[in-house]
Design a binder for these strands. Sequence first.
DNA 1: CCGTAACCTGCAAACGGTTGTAAAGAATAC
DNA 2: GTATTCTTTACAACCGTTTGCAGGTTACGG
Lengths: 333, 333
Amino acid sequence: MAVTIRDVARATGVHVSTVSRTFSAPNLVSTPTRERVMAVAAELGYRPNRAARALTTGRTHNLGLIVSDIANPFFPPLIKAAQAYAREREYHVFVADTDEDPQAEEELIRTLAKQVDGVVLVAPRLTNQAIERLGLELPFVVVNRRVKGLSAVLMDIGHGTELAVEHLAGLGHRRLGLLSGPRGSWSSEQMKRAAAVAAERADLRLTVIGPNAPTERGGIAAATAVRDSGVTAVIAYNDLVAIGLIEGLGELGTEVPADMSVVGVDDTVAGRLNRPKLTTIVMPTPAAGRTAVDLLLQAVDEDGRTAAQATLATDLVVRESTAAAPGVADTGA
Amino acid sequence: MAVTIRDVARATGVHVSTVSRTFSAPNLVSTPTRERVMAVAAELGYRPNRAARALTTGRTHNLGLIVSDIANPFFPPLIKAAQAYAREREYHVFVADTDEDPQAEEELIRTLAKQVDGVVLVAPRLTNQAIERLGLELPFVVVNRRVKGLSAVLMDIGHGTELAVEHLAGLGHRRLGLLSGPRGSWSSEQMKRAAAVAAERADLRLTVIGPNAPTERGGIAAATAVRDSGVTAVIAYNDLVAIGLIEGLGELGTEVPADMSVVGVDDTVAGRLNRPKLTTIVMPTPAAGRTAVDLLLQAVDEDGRTAAQATLATDLVVRESTAAAPGVADTGA
DNA sequence: CCGTAACCTGCAAACGGTTGTAAAGAATAC
DNA sequence: GTATTCTTTACAACCGTTTGCAGGTTACGG
């Protein structure tokens, strides 16, 4: 059916191994032969069969990318970047969605294992232990998590949190709330830690409210607690939670940013389109996707002997959901 | 390295072909043998190597899913559903993003061809001609497009458009605008046609404004034209355009829905989170993803001899961006 | 008790490549 | 002119599975 290396060999009058080498080790074949083979191959429309190649080389040139929920707006930019960068490096990527189910995640990894050279795990739901175990069989890169022996891409949410705290302090807020994320979330922990330090330094009083589901719903549910806590500014676990919170507060008659300032995290489209437009901590998701693939291919090449760590900077973008604390004159911009 | 069929055969004391059949044609092997093999396989942690299997069977059990922009909120729900459904049918899916570039699209399809049993093309940027040509080599399913000889999944945007027109007519609007999409968009054409018919029937005057870029920016850019057109209600090409339009109108001092009603298309998260919440035509994106995979596997099984068409219903969800025409008493709900 | 069919299982050749080794010829050194 | 090395190509085994074919058992009907 499809044209194979053998067809090319026959048409050129050389042995298949010569054709093979023309593509995999061109310097081992003389220039005239190489050119002849290439010409014939092009004419016949020959494309090497990667699956067959994988069988002998042990390299599939495929990658797996596993996320908990493709539809969560945090992921698509990461997926897009990872996929584009992988393609540049001549890799294809399987994208899989675990629906937040750790069991599905493990099963998925297992069936994928034979077909890929490595896997990027974004915000995995599996325990560290389980991941370490799997890491023995296959190169992994985890994003926003630390697992012993594995490469990791971390977004420096701590720094972004500091910026947000300083921004709010500068607007005259004295009491700050933090809507934490799901239990066991690495980034939520980082945020708490950084917020505590920065609040102390800026002489703010910090109240942690949570854990909360990382969704709009989670934000809505937290609205009453936030209003009753006495804070005038809140940093939410992510944009979705922030948006939900704003909606929930609105139903309680508390307006954002007039009565309460709200900061999100991620800088998703959703936050950009929300009214009021969200002040948010920018997560470098496209860079994270690229870096993850980069580290993964590195790990693949050295058979996962070294575990590299990359930390990506975050930033704060001020939009409309934060303003001077009630009773404080706006210092303006 | 990994455990192969041979290891299992050796450990069980049978020939490799028996092990192979245990998994691929269990009824051909006696119950005791089968159970012994299965037990040993389980103990050794054997997993069939799909690439090797693909070599002999010609079935990779992989699918390609090609979209123009993963980050566009229209796609993720479709990708998620397609991927989940494929997994149920024991297929893995490569997701690729063409960045709206037809050349990249074609090259991508070519390199993917040997690795997949078929490809789902969502809103392709290639010409019909090019797709037809590729269709000779590989099973395809196109979503929201009609290509001779290929299976297609179509969303009945026409019906949704009719519903929207009727909804607006019921609110007392007499002059209606339609923000069309990019030139050559199948769904934009469907919308125009349906809107014309429904407007005629409801005795509305219809003005088509466009083409417009399918983005928020495109909506902003159209704001002036919309205000000056004299219409009191607009159906936009998609949610993003609708959101942009609302923003653009706001800057011109035209409030939605008080001064102008706006209807979107797609029902993306973005529209749900927007203020005012968007009245929009619901596109069945998850269903489209599932159906596309379904038709594709069907085409794969019969070697693409038949081309099936599926048309999916759309619906209208009324939220906050539409209201009674200026000067007309709201009939209420 | 034999012939035949049904059922299991083993053998070996694919599938489309890669790669270590060998052989042939050309080039270089002495 | 011969020995040595280098370059180029061919040969063949192998990667992990599947599958047509054939041989060996067992069961069954007559």
